Simulated assay, not measured.
Amino acid sequence: MPEFPAIICTVDIALLTLQDDALHVLLLKRDREPFNGSLALPGGYLHAQEDQSAEDAATRVLRDKAGIVSPYLEQLATFSGPGRDPRGWSISIAYYALLPAGVLAVDGTGRQLRPVAKLPALPFDHGRIVAAAVERVRSKSQYSSLPVYLCDEAFTLPQLQSVYEAVLGEPLNKVSFRRKMDELGMLEAIPGAQTSGGAHRPAQLYCLRREFRHALSMLDRGLSV
């Protein structure tokens, strides 16, 4: 029987957040070969002795390498082939995660947030993974509550609309947006919670209903109608 080389099996995570009203992705500086010193997505091998699933592995990698547990983590796609890793034939089960702005501490050296529209050259096929994650998020944002996971725990409706607009890259009609939020039924007003007056009238604060915190609500029609 011919002997075949072992296949490398990893997980990679595109963690997305908003900064300066634009989608950014977390990149870490690699500390080993291949591509030592290059910025790349958080990733690592599956640990057969401790990971019960690929999602467990992705959760572990985010916790150990980025120091966070994302409120939203979803499998994206499988990337595979003999040319994506110089060490040999490899499979990466890719995930994407969403995190509110300001939650993730970055130091500008080992951990960096880079705008998805202006990424440096990334090793392996991490550029393709980021592009696929951005496309998935923008597509789902047309009909689901997904962008809420980029918000703080409490937010106003104008703040939520700004998040949707930043993700979709286009302005939304205020009336249509609020009607869509009502149809989704995903928000609840926080009793007695409003923003401070300042230069504007106080605004009601909302949060995601408990039943939506681990699942998405989807409708057939998009937000632009």
Rank of each mutant, 00 (worst) to 15 (best):
E165C: 14
E211A: 11
V25K: 03
H126V: 00
R87E: 11
S145C: 12
A121N: 09
L23V: 05
P71I: 08
R209D: 01
G110M: 00
T109Q: 15
R136K: 15
L219D: 08
F79W: 01
L23R: 01
H24Q: 14
Y95V: 02
V69L: 06
L184P: 04
R178I: 10
S80D: 15
G44Y: 08
D107I: 01
L28K: 04
V25W: 02
C151A: 15
F79V: 08
P2K: 13
Y72V: 00
L39Y: 14
S224N: 13
A57M: 07
P34D: 07
L15T: 10
F212D: 07
D20L: 09
M1G: 13
R138T: 07
E170V: 12
L16S: 11
L157I: 14
A57I: 06
G102D: 02
G43H: 03
G67K: 10
L122H: 05
L76W: 04
S92L: 10
F79I: 06
D152C: 09
A66L: 04
D125P: 01
D64V: 11
V103Q: 14
D51G: 04
R111D: 06
M181V: 13
R209V: 01
L223Y: 11
V225G: 14
G102P: 06
S70I: 03
V130A: 00
Q19G: 12
R213A: 06
D107K: 06
L168I: 08
D20F: 08
E188T: 12
E50D: 07
A154H: 11
E183Q: 12
Q159D: 11
D220G: 15
P147H: 04
S80F: 11
Q49R: 15
G110D: 15
A199I: 12
G198S: 05
L16G: 07
R84S: 08
E211G: 00
Y206S: 06
A189F: 02
A121S: 06
I13V: 15
P158V: 09
M218G: 03
I7T: 14
I13H: 04
Y96V: 01
R179V: 08
P120A: 00
L150W: 06
R179I: 10
S38W: 14
A48L: 15
